[in-house]
């Protein structure tokens, strides 16, 4: 390393310092504080509110025997798998592939797909309440009624599927943008050469395009998994976890533990376990997709 590099490295770290301070104070510190809370019986009401006790791994032991927690974890898993990994990804990739063609109305279609992504979570929540709630009266049933399709109590009968559909709706655009970017980095000459060699479009996609956009897919999977696990406001506005606890994703479960049962300590333990699981998923992506940042 030259003197220049050393000085430069020092200067570069200085440039990063404001980010470190802000993220450290308002992102990392609260997360660490949650770890501390998870080792106590901290509460928002009762004696434990003013005099929390250190309970060691108590909350974690309780968590492993808590059916509600496991249920919530399974719901979250399906939610992430259904909406982020499958729904948004397939529709986003499909849209990106199709929009590479020289179609008419291309910009219009592009804008339409982007629209739901710009909808704030509260608005999205109650747009979907209108669509799905209210039995026969729901907007979706009224629209389907115009086509002669009998009404279904969507949220009541298929709660989990419905929040997956709604969340897919919100996120097609982000998948599409990333996939478009990934695809635009694939040199057309390679595909052209393969075509001349007699490769079918499917083979070209499988053996040329897909490997080349793998890093983009990795980035998408990582970011969308993380953001989907942390979803709270949208589902809170839409179902509050109901009916029953059918849509109680982990964010809602933590909210219920912390602010309905007022058990901050236990709610924090759930958050910490969620963090650990997501780190495992992150590592899995890195290994499975064999990419580096």
């Amino acid at each position: 390393m030259t003197t220049y590099d050393k000085r430069s490295s020092w200067q570069l770290q200085l440039l990063l310092l404001p980010c470190l301070l802000l993220i450290g104070a308002l992102v990392i510190y609260p997360a660490l504080y949650s770890v501390y809370l998870s080792l106590t019986n901290a509460s928002l009401v009762g004696v434990a509110a003013t005099h929390p006790r250190f309970v060691g791994p108590g909350n974690y032991l309780r968590l492993f025997g808590d059916g509600g927690f496991w249920h919530s974890l399974v719901v979250t898993l399906w939610f992430v798998l259904g909406s982020a990994v499958i729904g948004q990804f397939l529709l986003g990739l499909g849209s990106a592939l199709l929009l590479r063609r020289p179609l008419r109305f291309k910009n219009l279609i592009n804008s339409i797909i982007l629209l739901p992504n710009a909808v704030p979570e509260v608005v999205a929540g109650y747009i979907w309440i209108s669509m799905l709630a209210g039995g026969e009266q729901s907007t979706l049933n009224r629209l389907l009624g115009l086509l002669g399709i009998p009404s279904v109590q969507w949220l009541e009968r298929f709660p989990l599927v419905m929040i997956i559909v709604a969340n897919t709706w919100r996120g097609i655009a982000s998948a599409m943008i990333l996939m478009m970017a990934g695809l635009s980095a694939v040199p057309p000459e390679i595909c052209e050469a393969a075509r001349i060699d007699g490769a079918s479009p499917r083979q070209i996609f499988r053996f040329i395009t897909l490997p080349l956009i793998m890093p983009t897919i990795f980035l998408y999977m990582l970011v969308s998994t993380v953001t989907t696990i942390s979803i709270f406001g949208f589902i809170y506005a839409l179902t509050r976890g109901g009916p029953g606890n059918a849509t109680e994703i982990i964010g809602i479960y933590i909210y219920n533990q912390s602010f309905t049962a007022f058990q901050l300590g236990y709610g924090s333990a759930v958050a910490v376990v969620t963090l650990v699981i997501s780190i495992a998923i992150g590592l899995f992506y890195v290994r499975a997709l064999k990419v580096q940042v």
Binding site: S43, L44, V45, G46, V47, A49, T50, F262
Partner: peptide
């Protein structure tokens, strides 16, 4: 009662 116990 819950608020009283917390000393609020």
């Amino acid at each position: 009662a819950d608020m009283v116990a917390a000393g609020y």
